[in-house]
Design a protein around this nucleic acid. Structure first.
Lengths: 159, 159
DNA sequence: TTGACTTCGTTGCAGCCGCAACGATATTTC
DNA sequence: GAAATATCGTTGCGGCTGCAACGAAGTCAA
């Protein structure tokens, strides 16, 4: 509790501005804490990164998808998705075929091993969600609503 | 609105799990949208990155600080701070001296140019905060409270 | 059919990040 | 006072990311 800020830097040239009370920063912090807490669990067990996780979840949810499908649903650059998929394929948890209907597209899906892994991993996520919900209690609904407002207002849908 | 997920991948092996309704993901998305919206403004005018921004804001707020002071306040790795400070020093907006009281520490502060820049930039942030608050209306207080709960619950303070 | 245009995924590049190891300086302990 | 220990900031390294450019494949129009 030492090193107090002296706040006399600019001689009051600009208004006091504390990052700790700035909503974008607080949001980033909260998001990072949540992500890390969850990621620590599956990283330890399976060596899965956040990018891996997002791709895998989408495939578990959708069954089959192309890179573009994932991109439309998950906010990730297509190059990131491409590289993530390649890594997951090498690990043997994702299958990467060519779509015969349109040979530009990939037909991505989980392998047997991938499905087995997700059978183990998804409940972790579900219970984490439950934990958040429980910890927040009545605040949870309000948080959800506010997040939705922000996502709508700042272009979470289509550009 | 084509490419519907078929959801038949695992044959119902695991519970339906939609990333879009998962709180950690939604939080990350909202945080990213806010960050990008704000960052676009000062990046365009001053070529400032988010890391730059955080360091600069802290210095504007605190007047003088060491790398460690910043690390204690802002969640950034010390190596990131070190490199960010070096870049900002080269640009001439941050001064980097040695603390005579303890020669391990740096005595960081804004230069005249840095203060001038922040005089211009900080109001942008203030008005962005006001915009968020206005857009959320009564939801804002609830969001703040929920964020605080999460940050407390997941270790936003000291490890 | 052919040629222009669009879409999809990959890759080269440059930059940033986190971790761990390190040198320099302070502090503690004996 | 000297040696062990702790703290601070920097740097090397490996990995990841976003952007832009690209080749391959499909679509559209004349």
């Amino acid at each position: 509790m030492n090193e107090q800020a002296d706040k006399t830097g600019g001689g009051g040239r600009y208004p006091a501005f504390d990052l700790a009370h700035f909503t974008p920063y607080r949001m980033a912090l909260a998001a990072q804490l949540l992500s890390e807490t969850l990621a620590a669990q599956y990283r330890e067990r399976y060596g899965i990164s956040v990018a891996d996780w997002r791709v895998l979840v989408h495939l578990a949810y959708a069954g089959k998808a192309s890179v573009r499908d994932i991109q439309n649903r998950v906010v990730m650059d297509k190059s990131t998705i491409s590289r993530t998929v390649s890594r997951l394929e090498e690990r043997g948890v994702v299958s990467k075929r060519e779509n015969p209907k349109d040979r530009r597209l990939l037909l991505l899906s989980l392998t047997e091993a991938g499905e087995a892994m997700m059978t183990d991993v998804l409940p972790m996520a579900t219970s984490f969600q439950a934990r958040i919900q429980a910890e927040l209690g009545p605040q949870f609904a309000a948080l959800e609503a506010a997040l939705q407002s922000l996502i709508d207002a700042y272009g979470g849908g289509e550009p």
